Simulated scan of single mutants.
Amino acid sequence: MAKQSLPQINQLSKYLTKETLLPIYFLCGEDSYTIEQAVDAIEKVVSPLLGSGFDRDVFSGDKSFELNQVLDQALSFPFGGEKRLIEIKNFEKLTDKKSLSGYVKDPASFTVLVITQNGSVSDAAKEPYNLLIERKYLFEAKPITGSELADWFVRLAKKKNLDIPEDHARAVIEVVGENKSLLEMQIQKFIDYSNSGKKLTVEELVKLSSPTKEYSIFDFIGSIGKGDKSKSLEVGFNLLDSGVEIVFVINMVAKFIMTVAQILDLTRQRISENEGARLAGVSYYYYINCKKATFFMSDTRLHNASRALLNADLAVKSSGMDHKTVLQMLISELLGEVATSPLQN
Score class of each variant (00 low, 15 high):
residue 6 L to S: 09
residue 8 Q to F: 08
residue 21 L to M: 09
residue 22 L to K: 15
residue 24 I to D: 00
residue 27 L to F: 09
residue 29 G to N: 12
residue 29 G to E: 11
residue 30 E to W: 04
residue 36 E to F: 08
residue 38 A to W: 12
residue 38 A to F: 10
residue 40 D to R: 12
residue 42 I to C: 03
residue 49 L to V: 01
residue 49 L to I: 02
residue 49 L to F: 04
residue 55 D to N: 10
residue 56 R to Q: 13
residue 60 S to E: 14
residue 64 S to K: 14
residue 66 E to Q: 14
residue 67 L to W: 10
residue 71 L to D: 00
residue 72 D to T: 07
residue 73 Q to G: 04
residue 74 A to P: 00
residue 75 L to D: 00
residue 80 G to P: 01
residue 80 G to D: 07
residue 80 G to H: 10
residue 81 G to L: 08
residue 85 L to E: 04
residue 94 L to A: 07
residue 95 T to K: 15
residue 96 D to I: 02
residue 96 D to K: 15
residue 98 K to H: 03
residue 112 V to Y: 02
residue 115 I to D: 01
residue 116 T to Q: 09
residue 118 N to I: 07
residue 119 G to A: 06
residue 120 S to H: 03
residue 122 S to C: 01
residue 122 S to Y: 03
residue 123 D to R: 15
residue 125 A to K: 14
residue 126 K to H: 02
residue 132 L to T: 02
residue 132 L to K: 07
residue 132 L to V: 02
residue 134 E to P: 00
residue 141 A to Q: 03
residue 143 P to V: 07
residue 143 P to Y: 09
residue 146 G to F: 09
residue 151 D to I: 04
residue 152 W to K: 08
residue 158 K to P: 01
residue 159 K to T: 04
residue 161 N to M: 06
residue 162 L to V: 08
residue 163 D to N: 12
residue 174 E to L: 09
residue 174 E to F: 12
residue 175 V to H: 03
residue 177 G to F: 10
residue 183 L to N: 10
residue 185 M to Q: 15
residue 186 Q to N: 14
residue 189 K to M: 09
residue 190 F to L: 13
residue 193 Y to K: 09
residue 195 N to G: 04
residue 197 G to V: 06
residue 198 K to N: 05
residue 198 K to L: 01
residue 199 K to A: 10
residue 199 K to Q: 12
residue 204 E to D: 10
residue 206 V to K: 11
residue 207 K to T: 07
residue 207 K to S: 10
residue 210 S to G: 13
residue 212 T to A: 15
residue 219 D to A: 09
residue 221 I to K: 14
residue 221 I to F: 08
residue 222 G to Q: 10
residue 230 S to M: 11
residue 233 L to M: 15
residue 235 V to Q: 11
residue 236 G to D: 09
residue 237 F to L: 13
residue 238 N to E: 11
residue 244 V to W: 08
residue 249 V to C: 07
residue 249 V to E: 05
residue 250 I to F: 11
residue 251 N to S: 13
residue 255 K to S: 14
residue 256 F to V: 02
residue 259 T to K: 05
residue 262 Q to A: 05
residue 272 S to T: 11
residue 273 E to L: 12
residue 277 A to C: 02
residue 278 R to Q: 08
residue 278 R to N: 10
residue 286 Y to Q: 08
residue 287 Y to D: 03
residue 292 K to V: 03
residue 294 T to K: 14
residue 296 F to H: 10
residue 299 D to P: 01
residue 302 L to P: 07
residue 304 N to W: 05
residue 312 A to I: 08
residue 312 A to N: 09
residue 315 A to T: 06
residue 316 V to Q: 11
residue 318 S to N: 14
residue 325 T to W: 10
residue 326 V to D: 05
residue 326 V to G: 04
residue 335 L to P: 02
residue 336 G to L: 06
residue 336 G to V: 06
residue 336 G to I: 06
residue 342 P to T: 06
residue 344 Q to G: 00
